[in-house]
Design a protein around this nucleic acid. Sequence first.
DNA 1: CCTCTAACGGTATCGTGGTTCCGTTAGGAC
DNA 2: GTCCTAACGGAACCACGATACCGTTAGAGG
Lengths: 196, 196
Amino acid sequence: MADVRPGGRTARVRASVLQATGDLLAEHGFAHLDLAEVARQAGVGRTTVYRRWGTTTALVTDLLVDMAEQSLRRTDAGSLLGDLCGNARLVQRTLSDPRQGALFKAIIAAATCDEQAAAALREFYRTRVAEWAPCVELAIERGEVPAGTDSHEVIRAVSAPLYYQLLITGQIPGEADADRAAEVVCLAARAGAFIG
Amino acid sequence: MADVRPGGRTARVRASVLQATGDLLAEHGFAHLDLAEVARQAGVGRTTVYRRWGTTTALVTDLLVDMAEQSLRRTDAGSLLGDLCGNARLVQRTLSDPRQGALFKAIIAAATCDEQAAAALREFYRTRVAEWAPCVELAIERGEVPAGTDSHEVIRAVSAPLYYQLLITGQIPGEADADRAAEVVCLAARAGAFIG
DNA sequence: CCTCTAACGGTATCGTGGTTCCGTTAGGAC
DNA sequence: GTCCTAACGGAACCACGATACCGTTAGAGG
């Protein structure tokens, strides 16, 4: 007797529901996300969605957990500017993709009003930032930036202007924006602005 | 006979409804904003709120328009770093205030799923950025930063990491964060990273 | 292959957010 | 002061999202 049944149908249902959730979030945004419509589009019963998730924020949270599992590997360009550019371009490509960009907007909106979603979001970025932080550590070893530089803060600083564009000015970030973000942070990091 | 009646009761109703909206947004977040509760707390009829605003996003949009009217004046410290610090501290104080911070989170959430709210948000920041951009122009005249530097982009870059903290990492920005944001941007601007 | 039960799905029901109706109030014009 | 009407407010109404119930399905163990 198994207490849980991870395989087969359950997994299929979760996959199709999360797929439908992503599609609908990208199309209508978080505020208009309707669990019944998710169920219809996923081809599962309404009851199932309400039972397993219950609220829109729980659904979004689970979607984020699912996305976090397929994190993107860091590249290594050999210089801090190259590495930060690589990271910035990756973020920029994600945010400028119509589906992914809308998805992130929706998830961030969900996080502003639900603690579980906010916690999932923090964990998601903690993982992603930790994946890229080593490129700053390497730069410290090379002597490119001063010792004591906060590697996580450097990575976050690269993403910040791209998210600012997406959420506040409403401009879709382009490659030039990504490169500028990387350059700004690289210059500041070399000058020791991220120590402490 | 007057077509519109701007004075007296109408204005009082708007003021108390917007006040209640701000309070409730700060307390419960955008997702749980209930027009009936707004009406109750504002001491006006439910019907009135539904008739004049109708949706939560319209209410938030109007609140933002109201807030935009009392924009904060720029200070002048005589150096780019000083001016950017002044701006960063101003933003930081706003975002770290419990009521205002929650309000901005709610407004940004509203903007992610409603075009009117997004337009109001863009206009709000366009105005605020334009208010502070002259400090970069002055720095150009002083020869502190190279000609051709995009003054608006510099101001936006100062705010970006503070908003990133508020929305994504969930940390309330402190004075040290504000000063770092200003320093990072100042260094990069001097090196010509914001040309074009 | 058979059993057992976790998980699914259709249907009926319930509650609450939103709308409509109509009488009341108050601010501007003269 | 009087009239006129824009705007407000209470109450009934409506619709739809959320829940509960219960029969059905399918995957894991023996």
